[in-house]
């Protein structure tokens, strides 16, 4: 199989004698199995094939896939918590992420701060954007203390 952008900006998958345009990579279980089971869908949403691991795509294709995934999954990883304040049911966050600085609000933390496992905390802001804290213990002590004060 071969994955490449042709024409520019459109992911193409050539598999044996068939070529699919506008291929969409989609994680099957992004929360519980974050780096496994990647499904490649055609432009109509039908699965072409599933990769057990990203690396199974072959060295040439992995970079293209990574690029497409990063563009498609606009989650961000929280690296530092600058400030957290809980007021009147709303929680105001100021964080540094792998995509840069971000301020956001979450409401009813009971539903919107989800512990996927001991080390993986998912925050969902009022607009539905996802912020992942993973692994939680990798945060610096100050960030951790701020985080623990609300969740």
């Amino acid at each position: 199989m071969q994955l490449f952008y042709a024409p520019e900006g459109r992911l193409r998958l050539t598999l044996e004698d068939r070529s699919h345009l506008d291929v969409v990579p989609a994680w099957a279980a992004p929360r519980t199995h974050p780096d496994r089971y990647l499904s490649l869908l055609d432009s109509k949403g039908k699965e072409i094939l599933m990769l057990d691991r990203l690396e199974d795509a072959g060295a040439d294709n992995v970079e293209v896939l990574r690029q497409e995934l990063r563009r498609r999954y606009l989650y961000s990883q929280v690296r530092r918590v600058n400030a957290v304040r809980m007021e009147f049911g709303a929680t105001y966050w100021s964080v540094e992420t792998d995509r840069g600085h971000r301020d956001f609000v979450t409401q009813s933390l009971q539903e919107n701060a989800q512990w996927i496992d001991e080390e993986f905390l998912l925050l969902i802001d009022v607009e539905g954007n996802h912020y992942q804290v993973k692994p939680v213990s990798a945060l610096d002590p100050e960030s951790l203390r701020r985080l623990r004060s609300v969740v």
Binding site: R71, R72, Y73, L74, Y75, G128, N129, H130
Partner: peptide, 9 residues
């Protein structure tokens, strides 16, 4: 608008 996960383009 092309809907992506947690955003769009």
């Amino acid at each position: 608008h092309d809907p992506l996960v947690s955003g769009g383009r």
